[in-house]
Design a binder for these strands. Structure first.
Lengths: 198, 198
DNA sequence: GCCCCTAAAACAAACGTTCGTTATGATAAC
DNA sequence: GTTATCATAACGAACGTTTGTTTTAGGGGC
């Protein structure tokens, strides 16, 4: 009775492999992780992995594309939502931090390991990243258009600064910290929107 | 007459190897770069590299420790310098960006590839990174103590946001861009210190 | 009896590294 | 001005290991 569609916990061996790969790719990088590393962590012989996955790169493609999608899905709806650009940018920052907190290692893979995608999958991943960046660019330009954001801002530099701060969060953010992810997001939004000056 | 100590351009083969390794480690990561890749780029057979370097890891140790040192040397003097915390933090941000612009690929190695240092060299590298972070923490605390920085700031989050934005710069900063590195630094300082709100 | 999954073993290729030798100039002795 | 000496730096081949992946065979659930 308590199942039917349980919220998608690592049901099969396929998901177990994926979760292990996320952890190892995040910690040691794609090139620094061998299929034997993954097999050991899963508790299986290396060759047995190939009953569930097509290749090492297919594993990376899965992780990265699903990972980017989570960020886009969390942030994109707010681009055209109601409310002031300030409120929406703030909400986007919080949403981003929450996605990172949901699984920092996966975020590390998304932000750093996409370089190792092959020629077939790399262009699409790059385009998805651009799509994500455009969400922030769009809202910041809205804010500058309405005069709520400073007019002397270099919008490119502003976007890259905010995205840089956000993209770095998986490096230090712990889901088990004393601050809840939502609180961390609010604090970052306060710092990035208002600056540090009194 | 026009020599004596020419400014230290990649004199020997040793430096040529180092420069190539910086570029490849930055682009493909440490694990993703083989000694054969380096040898090919230098124009030499793989074994010949070992007449000049001790090992692949020794190459990484050189690059990372020298790289961190450049950041510390550029920023640390400003921690105890004269001037307001605002002016000093601004100068530190500009200095950081200028070090990145001097060689973005080296900065990528410093910020991402230190994980692959062995047990002998990793603790020291981590301590150096902490030392660098403490420079920023110190100045921000000075700014909050004098009341020039907002009192409702979470200093940990503020520092991590600023450092995150800075550490991400090698990902997009080009030394040949239309904005000079110094200008990019000033713009980032403006964004990070003052926020985006009007 | 079929089907999914695994173990076990093997594959070719690429890995970091070592080795003895050789080509190249410069320096010093005669 | 030739010759011997020496350091530099690269070669070419091989080392043992690890890489991603394939193949073959066997065991348990329906």
């Amino acid at each position: 009775m308590n199942e039917a569609k349980p919220v998608e916990v690592p049901s099969g061996p396929r998901d177990a492999i994926r979760d292990v790969a996320v952890r190892l790719f995040g910690k040691q990088g794609f090139s620094g992780t061998s299929m034997r590393d993954i097999a050991n962590a899963v508790g299986v012989l290396p060759g047995s992995l190939y009953a569930h996955i097509a290749s090492k790169e297919a594993l990376l493609v899965d992780i990265v594309s699903d990972g980017i999608h989570r960020f886009i899905a969390a942030v994109e709806p707010m681009v055209g939502a109601t409310g002031s650009p300030i409120e929406r940018l703030r909400a986007m920052i919080v949403a981003h931090v929450e996605v990172v907190a949901d699984n920092p290692e996966r975020s590390l893979v998304v932000f750093h390991q996409w370089r190792f995608l092959g020629p077939d999958n790399l262009p699409l991943a790059i385009e998805r990243r651009r799509e994500y960046e455009r969400c922030f660019i769009s809202v910041i330009e809205q804010g500058m258009a309405t005069g709520q954001f400073r007019a002397d801002l270099n919008r490119r530099i502003a976007v890259l600064s905010i995205l840089g701060a956000l993209n770095w969060t998986p490096e230090w953010l712990s889901p088990d910290g004393q601050l809840k992810p939502h609180e961390v997001g609010e604090l970052m939004a306060g710092t990035l929107l208002g600056g540090v000056l009194a």
